[in-house]
Design a protein around this nucleic acid. Structure first.
Lengths: 225, 225
DNA sequence: TTTATAAAGATAGTAATACTATTTTTAATA
DNA sequence: TATTAAAAATAGTATTACTATCTTTATAAA
């Protein structure tokens, strides 16, 4: 039996649903590859069209602009990650064990998930590390937020915040700690690989060091070492 | 007596030193205002030239492109902040008191410093919150790093890491904790004002709540509550 | 089988961006 | 007064970020 995981996307993010056609799926697939390869700044719809073998206008029928496409990919990633977390922490009763699992999932490279054929989760994870913040670090963040573009991110943050509160109901900053864990899982990874002197795991480049750091940070804060 | 604070800049960041002329100072002054107003994506040398009353080509004589200008502004900010920290924590012996002061300086809006006439530190602080990460979240981060463009950031991180180690010499992640404090001082501020549900201080919008959160995070980690 | 229709493909065009180059004017300085 | 360096003025180019329109192809309803 092959289960097909489907992540429901906010349809204000696209003009035509990219999951509804081969061209659309190609746009998703190759935009992940191109952004990963050249970075978001150098990524253009023209280059994407060339790779896919369609025209610029063809891409524009699906996405208004490249910012919307980035927000789409980020939203997809957060939705996918929330599913991974709920799936992989299902049946775990102890919130501390649960939170440890969450931190591991956040800080560890993902293998490409066979369930979703057209998105390479491993590449997308790397894109989110290097480009994810650009989805909201814009002047339109307010408008975008009004249209609920960041709901998957907020949902994930809420889920993690709730686990934190389950660990220690008296802890005062569950949401800020949740967003700190999420952001730092990515930033410490980026720093480790690109600006290693900003971290304590420069030479090793091991992701489990990031996990160890985050575990220490979180569980001393929750006084549950 | 009026002291003139001068921050020495890496001269690979510019083609002509912007501090050496009125036009250069105007470029710095008005780029801060324009980026603050319209965001970095909408910021162009053409618009900047119009505001200043010069031509695009005039700006290009000082900066190779807008990315270099952003990196320049970020480097200036980190240099300025390191000076503020060393100045304001001078004579403080107790590293815990020192670290508290550092967190406050990182998380609090700055007043425009009269010492530097052409850069509005308050606006620049807001720019760094919203745009600062874009200075290094690029494909050229490796090249830029080789040219020491991020040295002021790394120096600041080192200074804070050393204070952390002075608080608790056994703490294993002084540099990662330092970069976490720096980044979170900014990100929690951005979230508070733009995506408040990612924080625990959404409705109040008080910066001292961020300080309280970071103090809690840091001093429980260092077991010095 | 014809016909409607929706997506995709092909082609063209535009305004703005991100530059480079050249020439002239202005200001400072030797 | 001559020299020089910066600034201003002007022009031009390749690329980006779109929009518009028309034709072809595939599907599927009548």
């Amino acid at each position: 039996m092959k289960l097909q995981l489907h992540i429901t996307m906010n349809d204000a993010l696209f003009l035509r649903n990219p999951e509804s056609s081969e061209l659309g799926k190609n746009i998703l697939k190759h935009s992940v590859q191109l952004i990963h390869k050249n970075g978001f700044e150098a990524f253009t719809f023209k280059k994407l069209a060339e790779v896919i073998g369609t025209t610029e206008a063809g891409i524009y029928r699906y996405f208004e602009n490249k910012h919307k496409l980035l927000v789409y990919l980020a939203a997809w990633y957060w939705g996918w990650l929330e599913f991974q977390i709920s799936f992989q922490t299902n049946n775990i009763k102890d919130p501390t064990v649960k939170l440890k699992k969450v931190i591991k999932l956040l800080a560890t490279a993902v293998e490409d998930d066979e369930q979703t054929s057209y998105i390479n989760e491993n590449l997308l994870h790397q894109i989110i590390i290097a480009e994810g913040s650009k989805a909201y670090l814009t002047k339109q963040v307010g408008e975008d937020n009004k249209q609920h573009f960041f709901k998957p991110y907020k949902d994930l943050c809420l889920v993690i915040g709730n686990i934190i509160s389950a660990c220690n109901p008296k802890y005062k900053y569950p949401k800020s700690l949740a967003s700190t864990i999420i952001e730092m899982a990515h930033f410490q990874n980026f720093f480790m690989n690109n600006l290693p002197s900003l971290t304590d795991f420069g030479n090793t480049k091991e992701e489990n060091k990031i996990t160890a750091f985050l575990n220490d940070l979180v569980f001393t804060s929750l006084k549950k070492v």
